[in-house]
Design a binder for these strands. Sequence first.
DNA 1: GTCCCTATACTCGGATAGCAAGTGTCCGAGTATAGGCGG
DNA 2: CCGCCTATACTCGGACACTTGCTATCCGAGTATAGGGAC
Lengths: 162, 162
Amino acid sequence: MKLSDGLEWALHCCTVLGSLPPDVALPAGRLAEFHAVPPAYLAKQLQALSRAGVVETAPGRRGGYRLARPATEITLLDVVVAVEGEAPAFRCTEIRQQGPSAVGPEHYVEPCGIARAMWRAETAWRDELRNVTIGDLVAELDTSVSPEQQQRAVNWVIGVLS
Amino acid sequence: MKLSDGLEWALHCCTVLGSLPPDVALPAGRLAEFHAVPPAYLAKQLQALSRAGVVETAPGRRGGYRLARPATEITLLDVVVAVEGEAPAFRCTEIRQQGPSAVGPEHYVEPCGIARAMWRAETAWRDELRNVTIGDLVAELDTSVSPEQQQRAVNWVIGVLS
DNA sequence: GTCCCTATACTCGGATAGCAAGTGTCCGAGTATAGGCGG
DNA sequence: CCGCCTATACTCGGACACTTGCTATCCGAGTATAGGGAC
């Protein structure tokens, strides 16, 4: 099992956008520069976030991406689902209905215990992600990052937007 | 994010082995036949389970696989880790240390909030998997599967082992 | 000085190659068994 | 009739192709802006 690298980038981008004033839009190229990641590939992730309604776009010159809702109303699950898709990680292919000792499909109305257990674990994972918002991450940054570095980041953003 | 198909097969195989008397070994080919899956590929998963110490092998004629411990002492997490590997799904590449506004590595002693949140969710997932054993699945089968079908499966195993 | 128009430069968006990991397969090494042989 | 030996057939184990999806990239469509010109 593996989560894509793009997910990490998307989460960091949302945190950066959440640290900015709500009406400021930052272009994908600048976000890529800020994290030193390939611009074209990061664009792919941002487009996925846009399709999912997590961020919204401002086209044209001086355009870019900004959060579509307040940072406190965007959960990590929203971002994960936007980038990774809604499909559950464990997929039951009903192999219990195959093989020599199987019986007719009418005997398999309930999902098998294996699938139920795996899905239960996945639900716990999703619940945990749903309980953390981008706003929480932004607030956490404020306590864990030194003031001078915060100022450094702010200055860089001001520089590229002017 | 995607869990391999082989994981589902491995879980079903462990459940079947857990339903058998402890000293009976079932060859990989028979397990593949029982679930109607490619024998050679299933063998790959069983080898992974063997390497992880979840099942043990009986070589030679009349050999096969059997559980290495009582079914109640094998958790779903054991099987998942054996097949999927121990690496966490989310990997932090520390992109916060990259880019124009980054500072020296000595300022990044704590993992970033994003990685901590993702890992916390993953821990919840693993905890849930740790709380379910192969024995639970076997017991659940006994209540959800009709007696005649259970007999059908037992007869098939007796048939292929004779 | 103010307003409007146009050309521009910058933005996002989807369509397009490359690569790693999962998927599927095969054949060789090793061993418990079955049968035959000798005592 | 019993014990031993050998050949066999079956098992697992690791090494070898193929396909899907993640990684990385590019160019085209569309728009807010900046500048220049007219009033």
